[in-house]
């Protein structure tokens, strides 16, 4: 039959439809635990609020950090929250990858005529991430108004591009971290580790010495998550050329992380049962 022919590469629309079908099932099952959903969403927002409170408390006593004012730090933090959101909502299944690999259940993903990574990732949509999105958006709008950044089409588009490239960096880091479990048993602690690093992205990179600036730009590039993109708005006159590189860095990192993940998956040999 014509339409059962397996084609290796499918169109965007096809994947979009499949994604919707799979993700909908997940949302349905999540909604049957309503109190868990509510508590988790509150918990998520509580984490974000505590990050905000940390800065707020510091600025009760001090007036600036290395030339950065409260509203600028807030802008940076809002950018971080927003760039963390896509990873939180759409790539949450990576946290479970090690269980699937360990127990052997991962094999079920290998027998579908669609992209392996796509199928695995589409299985979970983490709804509590929306709490983070709205809190981040609120902080961003608040600090944007306080800083009196002009609202122009150019600025909005630049911000969106910046946030998108930051999100790609987060996604790439977490995908690569989760892929380590194809080689190391139970490598959850590596994910926790990298996740903690992303939290340091809320500090302006300029407070660190040269060694750490290079470390956070090249080796663990958390500077590209929020700092370099937001420099465009906070230091419009002397932002660094690295700011312009953000989209390229994001795209390249995601590509590499995807390759690592797929390579690990291709090495997966099951548990033998």
């Amino acid at each position: 039959m014509e339409n059962t022919r397996i084609r290796p590469i499918r169109g965007f629309l096809f994947y979009f439809k499949i994604y919707w079908m799979i993700a909908l099932q997940d949302i349905k099952s999540k909604m049957s635990y309503r109190s868990d959903f509510l508590i988790s969403t509150i918990g998520m927002i509580a984490v974000n609020v505590s990050g905000f409170l940390g800065f707020w408390l510091v600025f009760q006593t001090f007036h600036e950090i290395n030339g950065w004012k409260f509203n600028e730090i807030l802008f940076l933090y809002a950018c971080l929250l927003l760039t963390m959101t896509p990873n939180q909502i759409f790539f949450d299944n990576n946290w479970s990858l090690r269980y699937y690999v360990y127990s052997g259940d991962f094999v079920k993903y290998c027998f579908r005529p669609i992209n392996l990574f796509f199928y695995f990732i589409s299985e979970v949509i983490d709804v509590k991430g929306f709490g983070q999105f709205f809190f981040g958006l609120f902080l961003l709008i608040y600090s944007w108004i306080q800083l009196q950044i002009p609202v122009t089409v150019g600025n909005v588009v630049t911000l969106l591009v910046g946030l998108l490239s930051g999100s790609l960096v987060v996604i790439a880091l977490m995908v690569a971290a989760s892929a380590t479990c194809f080689w190391l048993m139970n490598s959850g602690f590596i994910m926790v580790y990298i996740f903690k690093f992303t939290d340091y992205a809320k500090y302006p990179l300029s407070i660190f010495n040269k060694f750490f600036q290079v470390l956070f730009t090249v080796l663990i590039p958390i500077g590209f998550i929020a700092y370099y993109p937001s420099l465009y708005f906070l230091r419009p006159n002397d932002f660094e050329w690295l700011t312009l590189l953000c989209p390229v860095v994001g795209a390249i990192m995601v590509l590499i992380a995807y390759k690592i993940w797929m390579y690990g998956a291709s090495k997966y040999s099951g548990t033998g049962s």
Partner: peptide, 15 residues
Amino acid sequence: HTQSIWGINIMKEVV
């Protein structure tokens, strides 16, 4: 009482 571990635990950690 709640059947929610992640949410409860994270709130405790934050507090």
